[in-house]
């Protein structure tokens, strides 16, 4: 299983807003345990998908120089369960961002219906040696490429460009880029 809980970006406006899609499918093994005979997309994984949508937005804003960690979910409300066959549209909007962290508001919609809404708080981790091993910007950037960020991305005040790390990876086979 790959820990990627969004399928594709639909919009990516640097430092402001990102929208991604998550298709829920019966091919996902965990749905058969959650719950046997009544498969529903776990809410925790909807949180994760929204955090990935927002986290990449926050990380990109600082050119992936900061180590962005999900620090806190001050609020999360789920209005109904997401079922196999549903297409979830995740929208994340940056409310506040500064060198210490960022607050992002996030929604999940199925069609016009608001499925979930939350606030997600990201912190920029201090640059301590312990953290180095966990964060390889290339991993995020590779995932961004996979998710089509660079196909839809727009810069807020500048042209949206691939970070240098993507250019470096262009010739690396996908299997080797993940580590």
């Amino acid at each position: 299983m790959r820990w990627i809980w969004i399928d594709k970006f639909l919009e990516f406006e640097s430092g402001r807003r990102a929208q991604a899609v998550k298709n829920v499918t019966l091919a996902e093994d965990h749905l058969h345990d959650h719950f046997p005979g009544y498969p529903t997309m776990p809410n925790s994984l909807i949180v994760e998908g929204l955090a990935q949508t927002g986290g990449i937005l926050v990380g990109e804003h600082a050119g992936f120089k900061e180590k962005v960690v999900l620090a806190k979910i001050p609020k999360a409300v789920f209005h109904f369960a997401a079922l196999p066959g549903d297409t979830l549209i995740y929208t994340t909007t940056v409310e506040t961002i500064n060198p210490e962290g960022a607050m992002v508001s996030a929604t999940s919609h199925v069609g016009d219906r608001l499925q979930a809404e939350m606030e997600i708080f990201f912190a920029h981790l201090a640059d301590e040696p312990r953290a180095q091993g966990f964060f390889k910007p290339e991993n995020f950037v590779f995932t961004m490429k996979l998710l089509g960020v660079f196909d839809v991305g727009r810069g807020a005040e500048r042209r949206f460009e691939e970070p240098p790390a993507v250019a470096r990876m262009r010739d690396i086979p996908p299997g080797l880029a993940r580590s």
């Binding site: 620090a71 806190k72 409310e95 506040t96 962290g101 607050m103 708080f121 912190a123």
Partner: peptide, 13 residues
Amino acid sequence: SIDFLDIVFRLEK
């Protein structure tokens, strides 16, 4: 500790 930054963000806004 993380709540202090959250509080600062909310007060600023």
